[in-house]
């Protein structure tokens, strides 16, 4: 395949995402810089939720939609992350049932279907595996809305405001869903694994 998507024709100092998107209106290959900057973090998040195969599809579709819609990108928005993550979040939602099956499988077997080739670390992973299995059981039972908020924060590392923007909900709803989801996870974990901690922001 053409490495055009990955070749950095646009140097790192190319400026904000907005300026890159604007330039891509004249030269479409410049949009590859947006892929370079954002695909890795987005892909990692989606892999954790859906596994490698579906993640490749979702990320490809995200950037396809973004590319198609790039003429509507508002240049007042220097960072493209909320825009891209909004598209991806909606696509991930379409895989909700498959995702739930992943978590159930992990909860039942202790084998994380999303990971590849970690047999060499089996020893150190025994404890981690049982915690992951407990968490996965709880994740499987969360509602779509609660799960999206929880994982955009825990795995996507978005702020409350970014989550509100990505999901199109009030910040207050982000807080209440996060609180509810965390409470459910906490009750699912073996008591020895959690310690008294200040609530994360």
């Amino acid at each position: 395949m053409s490495p055009a998507a990955s070749r950095a024709r646009v140097p790192e100092e190319a400026g904000s995402d907005a300026s890159v998107v604007l330039r891509s209106l004249d030269d479409p290959t410049d949009f590859g810089e947006i892929f370079r900057r954002h695909a890795p973090a987005l892909h990692r998040y989606v892999v954790r939720r859906l596994g490698r195969a579906d993640a490749d599809d979702v990320v490809a579709e995200t950037f396809h939609v973004a590319f198609r819609e790039r003429h509507r990108y508002d240049p007042a928005y220097p960072d493209a992350r909320p825009w891209l993550w909004r598209i991806a979040a909606n696509l991930v939602r379409g895989h909700h049932r498959a995702e739930t099956r992943h978590y159930r499988a992990l909860a039942r077997t202790g084998v994380d279907p999303v990971l590849e080739g970690h047999a060499d670390r089996v020893g150190e992973r025994v404890d981690a595996a049982s915690v992951s299995a407990s968490l996965a059981g709880a994740l499987a039972r969360l509602s779509k809305g609660d799960r999206d908020v929880l994982l955009l924060i825990a795995w996507g590392e978005l702020t409350y405001e970014e989550v509100a923007s990505v999901l199109g909900i009030p910040v207050g709803t982000v807080r209440s869903r996060l609180h509810r989801a965390r409470k459910r996870l906490r009750t699912a974990l073996p008591t020895s694994t959690t310690t008294r901690e200040e609530e994360d922001r």
């Binding site: 990320v59 396809h64 795995w155």
Partner: peptide, 21 residues
Amino acid sequence: MRSEIPERSPDELALSTGWRP
């Protein structure tokens, strides 16, 4: 749970996702 997932390079992803502008 997420730390067990490596972040892949843009080049790898361009290949595996097949995305091109």
